[in-house]
Write a protein that binds this DNA or RNA. Sequence first.
DNA 1: CGATGCTCTCTTGCATGGTAGAAACTCTAT
DNA 2: ATAGAGTTTCTACCATGCAAGAGAGCATCG
Lengths: 230, 230
Amino acid sequence: MQESIVTQNTAGQSMLNDDVALLDRIRDLVLGGDYTPGTALSEVKLAEYFEVSRTPVREALKQLQIEGLVEIRPKVGTFVREITRREILEMFEVKETLEGMAARLMARRGHIPELDALRANVEASELAVQRDDSAAYASLVHDFHETIVAGSDNRKLAEHYRTLMNQLAYHRLVLRSVQHPGRLAASTAEHRRVLELIAQKDGVGAELAMKDHVWSSAREVMMDSVPRQD
Amino acid sequence: MQESIVTQNTAGQSMLNDDVALLDRIRDLVLGGDYTPGTALSEVKLAEYFEVSRTPVREALKQLQIEGLVEIRPKVGTFVREITRREILEMFEVKETLEGMAARLMARRGHIPELDALRANVEASELAVQRDDSAAYASLVHDFHETIVAGSDNRKLAEHYRTLMNQLAYHRLVLRSVQHPGRLAASTAEHRRVLELIAQKDGVGAELAMKDHVWSSAREVMMDSVPRQD
DNA sequence: CGATGCTCTCTTGCATGGTAGAAACTCTAT
DNA sequence: ATAGAGTTTCTACCATGCAAGAGAGCATCG
């Protein structure tokens, strides 16, 4: 079972990036979605595919277990974990809180470079909505949230946020839900609202607006991207 | 340099707990405070002390690096990281947000076993204050916060919280600041306030009260336990 | 005396062999 | 046919050997 480790499309680009951390490459493999939950991830197979020994593969898998993406059953094997609907809901709750916090912290900082970046981002998003360019939009959404987290100027918050997003495989979820025509415009309006509240240094308002926004998009994503699996 | 790996007191109890994860044992060593920041943690020395090979030690150190407790400089060595005052402040900001979230989530759950545990905890704390028993109090403070996080019924939140507390070495910090006579009574009053708001299912109120409380204790801890080091 | 280059020793990084345990498979007996 | 015990084969796990880089110390040269 499970003859080839990876699909052809990723094999094409795996020629020159050898300094990229093995951990990230294996994580992308797991998040890539080619594996259904329960699939075995053999140390040996992965080592052969990535042309390294079992030791670094093992270290990476151990980390992925801590991140919650795989499950290592001692002396049995390593398997792609099933992420339950409940877990995704919990992650969105944490996401809502962390991003709300980030908006609040950024608002109290006054005029900083990230604010200009945010304004540029929202304006680009509005253009993307007009052109109905959902690919560009998905990328801009990602940047919007990253910019606010960076603008919070709290590195620990940023670390927790990054960990969370890795577990959520958020980008993949968004790509599917962003297709909804109505949601695109609504989401952008919410972005602008958050931006304006931050610009007005209204920390509490920005936090609430951000939480509302996260929750709206969570609802949207949970609707059609996350199957009822338990 | 650094002749003995561990102090005598821990050596006494290290006889029967062999199934305890090596990661936790090394983390306790680092958090134990016997090492000043910058101290080298040799894989070989640790392996000899714990009577295992370098491989599991290496895996544990890699995880501690991700947790932010040590710094691995490739081909040079592994060193106890210096945690800056700024970092501690950032961690308290995240702590404030996460615990506020936990209180809010717990409040909306209604009558659950954790609520009774919380009430018992606060009453025990009030007794401990009367008896001026700061050792018992420190333990109860820990349980109070753990109970609220558990009561939030959000496992992802609990995971992030645990990670954060590991980095903060919070217990050590509290043990020092709890000596302040005035703070003990004030802190307990804040605990009761949070409890009552949760019992009344006032999620927003509980969140705000919790955040206030975390911030007050953070101020206290930062005052005398955290030296200005940068 | 100072600066520069070399060597030697220390570290982590990686590869690999052997071990123990879990699960699946087969063969046997009922 | 089915249940059970033995065996085989897979897995993660750990120990260890080797390699490569970083840095300290020393010698040598200006």
